[in-house]
Design a protein around this nucleic acid. Structure first.
Lengths: 77, 77
DNA sequence: GAGAATTTGTACGTATGTATG
DNA sequence: ACATACATACGTACAAATTCT
């Protein structure tokens, strides 16, 4: 169920992760809340900073919003 | 001539820097090429990562483009 | 209300890789 | 080949906001 990152791919981790999450949002697999930074970091085996990078991409695309102290959420459209 | 960052400000460094650069682009003080990461890092006394953060903001706004190995450039409009 | 736990935000230093000149 | 310049990624530390006990 959990798509893992490919360390041999030329696509960087942060981009692989944003691609995965974008797809999960599009498919409805993630409906409301995006897992926390720590959770994503552990599940995908990348650093917290890398997760932040991935989420920043999705936020700049307007797909999610992050709220300090609360979490990260899918933008309804 | 060089506006320095305010360490007491609640506005984070990366945002102060992106604000400064945005203004310099708008005013024409930076016409074509944005100083290198190392230059900005040294001049403003912040880390390379912080400069990258600031530039990423401007790039997401479409104001600049960064090209690996070449540099960072103002987008003509 | 107080305190702890959770969660995102900022920032640094470091290392290595990739692309250009 | 060498220097320059951006790209990715890690670990770490602390701050700020929210939520839970």
């Amino acid at each position: 169920l959990l798509v893992m990152l490919d360390e041999l791919s030329p696509v960087p981790y942060h981009e692989q992760l944003s691609n995965i999450l974008r797809e999960q949002i599009a498919s409805g697999a993630i409906e409301h809340r995006v897992p926390s930074l720590s959770t994503l970091s552990q599940e995908y085996g990348v650093s917290r900073n890398t997760v932040i990078h991935a989420l920043a991409t999705l936020e700049s695309e307007g797909l999610i919003v992050t709220v300090q102290g609360r979490g990260t959420f899918v933008v309804k459209r």
